[in-house]
């Protein structure tokens, strides 16, 4: 039981230590980042092939395609994030160390957020070039949506990746669980991105960003509360 376990170090310290460890592993190999970048680029390219060279159509739907590419890439990234721990039974080692289980959630979810945000930053220029869009309102708005969207995909994604990484057929299970869940996030992020790219005469951006923020609050909270139950043994 987690309550009887001694907790000599604080939640924040443990989170930062675990996050540092994950980022270090990621930096040394860069395998995950490279893989998802190429995957997302290929997805963006595939959308233009699937639709044919209709630039107007691509321009109109650019926000949606951008977020779909990030969503598909996020499934790969999330699945990988727990595969690292299943090698050499690392998860057992972390659990045996007197670290709060919630710190594992926070570190993994923050790590995934950083990864997806980095991916998004790299994809924006590609999207601008490939789909012929331009940023109409402001780059700050786009950055905000990118951050909020990555946070929104990471919190439930981390919970479900922890579950599916221990189940059979994990590659099928993660998208099956995650996709219906992130529909509100995907919808609002794509809508807000479209507003950034095509102008926002009605000032709807704030309400979509607000919806995304609310989604984040709920799922970071729920994940924080429920994650210890998933990895308890």
């Amino acid at each position: 039981m987690s309550t009887s376990r001694p907790r000599p170090i604080g939640l924040l310290t443990a989170t930062l230590a675990l996050l540092r460890k994950d980022l270090l592993i990621e930096w040394r190999t860069r395998a995950r980042l490279n893989a998802i970048i190429f995957f997302a680029l290929a997805t963006l390219l595939m959308f233009s092939f699937a639709l044919g060279p209709d630039t107007k159509l691509l321009e109109k739907n650019a926000g949606g395609y951008f977020w779909l590419a990030i969503l598909f890439a996020s499934v790969l990234a999330l699945g990988e994030s727990f595969r690292v721990e299943s090698e050499n039974a690392c998860m057992d080692g972390i659990r045996l160390a007197p670290a709060d289980a919630r710190a594992i959630f926070l570190s993994k979810a923050l790590g995934n957020t950083l990864l997806l945000t980095a991916l998004g930053v790299l994809l924006v220029p590609v999207m601008v070039a490939l789909y012929g869009v331009r940023i109409v309102t402001s780059v700050v708005d786009l950055g905000l949506i990118l951050l909020l969207g990555s946070l929104a995909l990471s919190a439930p994604g981390t919970v479900y990746a922890a579950i599916s990484s221990n189940a059979r057929a994990r590659d099928v299970l993660l998208p099956l669980l995650l996709f219906p869940l992130v529909i509100p996030a995907l919808l609002s992020a794509a809508k807000a991105t479209t507003l950034v790219l095509q102008g926002d005469p009605m000032r709807q951006f704030d309400s979509w960003a607000g919806l995304l923020g609310g989604f984040n609050l709920i799922y970071w909270g729920v994940g924080f509360l429920l994650f210890p139950r998933i990895i308890e043994d």
Binding site: P156, V159, Y160, I163, A167, L177, P180, L181, P184, I218, Y219, V222, L226, R229, I230, E232
Partner: peptide
């Protein structure tokens, strides 16, 4: 346990 977590998150959604 896992399916309970998934059920709660799904219902909140």
């Amino acid at each position: 346990t896992w399916s309970s977590v998934v059920a709660i998150i799904g219902a909140i959604n």
